[in-house]
Amino acid sequence: MTRTLNATAASLLGFLHEGPMTGWDLVATAQQRIGDFWSLTQSQVYRELTAMAEAGLVEAGDPGPRARRPYALTDAGREAFGEWLQGDVTEELIRFPLLLVVMFGEHVPPERLAEVITTHRHLHAQRLAMYEKELAEAPAGEPDPYAAATLDFGVRYERAVLEWFDALPTKLRGAND
């Protein structure tokens, strides 16, 4: 059965290349490794695992502790993942809820808009500091070039977002900036 993979399913197959994992393990791995740029919910993971098992891309093992069932990648899953990697990369879509609030800022009390902007600027500054700490603590020698490239994007993205915050008109940021 041929199944067109979406990016969520493909990410799960990518993680399963490392060995069998339960849905719980996959959620935790995704949150740790891609959570800053790709969101997965527990329900999405289990829905995708069920669909991929039906399509023969993964194989469910025997339930373990707490009835958690490990899933293993099949040859068909490896092939589907390889085909997904060779396919067209879809154009990214920015989903930044703060931009909706700013877009409709004329309908938001000025002090509330300033509060939201200040809060989000702080969150992005924290994330940048976390990424920079990860870079500084990276082991010497040959780093994983794929993880390093992803982390570099995160640093550059957060710097760009902070620059955008700093360039916002005073009217949007409020007087207490």
Score class of each variant (00 low, 15 high):
57 L>D: 02
49 L>N: 06
95 R>D: 13
52 M>A: 02
25 D>W: 09
84 W>Y: 15
23 G>L: 12
70 P>H: 00
98 L>F: 06
96 F>A: 10
54 E>I: 03
93 L>E: 15
41 T>I: 03
53 A>N: 07
71 Y>C: 06
109 P>Q: 10
45 V>E: 02
81 F>A: 11
81 F>Q: 08
24 W>P: 01
74 T>Y: 00
103 M>T: 08
26 L>W: 01
62 D>L: 14
45 V>T: 05
93 L>W: 11
66 R>G: 07
51 A>R: 04
99 L>S: 15
101 V>A: 15
113 L>F: 09
54 E>S: 11
71 Y>P: 04
36 D>E: 04
76 A>M: 00
115 E>Y: 12
45 V>D: 02
115 E>S: 13
56 G>N: 06
50 T>V: 08
23 G>Q: 10
114 A>W: 00
63 P>T: 05
30 A>M: 15
101 V>K: 10
70 P>M: 02
70 P>D: 01
68 R>Q: 14
68 R>H: 14
66 R>L: 11
95 R>A: 09
72 A>Y: 02
84 W>C: 03
27 V>S: 05
41 T>F: 02
54 E>T: 07
96 F>V: 06
110 P>F: 04
68 R>S: 13
85 L>T: 09
31 Q>S: 12
100 L>D: 15
50 T>E: 13
95 R>N: 09
42 Q>W: 07
36 D>M: 01
44 Q>N: 10
29 T>D: 05
24 W>Y: 11
41 T>S: 15
38 W>Y: 13
92 E>F: 11
33 R>Q: 09
107 H>A: 14
48 E>M: 12
114 A>P: 02
81 F>N: 07
27 V>N: 04
67 A>H: 11
79 E>L: 09
80 A>L: 01
99 L>Q: 12
78 R>S: 01
78 R>A: 00
90 T>N: 12
111 E>T: 11
112 R>H: 15
50 T>I: 08
31 Q>A: 13
55 A>Y: 02
115 E>V: 06
81 F>P: 03
82 G>F: 07
96 F>K: 06
71 Y>V: 04
101 V>C: 09
74 T>D: 01
38 W>C: 06
112 R>P: 07
94 I>Y: 13
108 V>W: 09
79 E>V: 05
32 Q>D: 14
82 G>W: 07
73 L>E: 03
27 V>F: 08
100 L>A: 14
93 L>Q: 13
80 A>S: 01
77 G>E: 02
76 A>Y: 00
113 L>V: 07
93 L>V: 13
48 E>H: 15
29 T>M: 05
99 L>T: 09
49 L>E: 06
59 E>K: 05
69 R>S: 03
73 L>M: 09
74 T>H: 00
56 G>Y: 04
36 D>P: 00
40 L>N: 03
53 A>W: 01
26 L>K: 00
68 R>G: 10
53 A>K: 05
57 L>W: 01
92 E>M: 10
65 P>F: 10
80 A>K: 00
69 R>G: 02
111 E>K: 12
50 T>H: 15
105 G>D: 04
105 G>L: 03
51 A>F: 01
79 E>Q: 12
73 L>T: 03
42 Q>E: 15
84 W>M: 04
81 F>I: 05
84 W>P: 02
55 A>F: 00
82 G>E: 15
105 G>C: 04
52 M>W: 00
52 M>T: 01
33 R>K: 09
60 A>Q: 01
44 Q>W: 08
58 V>A: 03
104 F>Y: 14
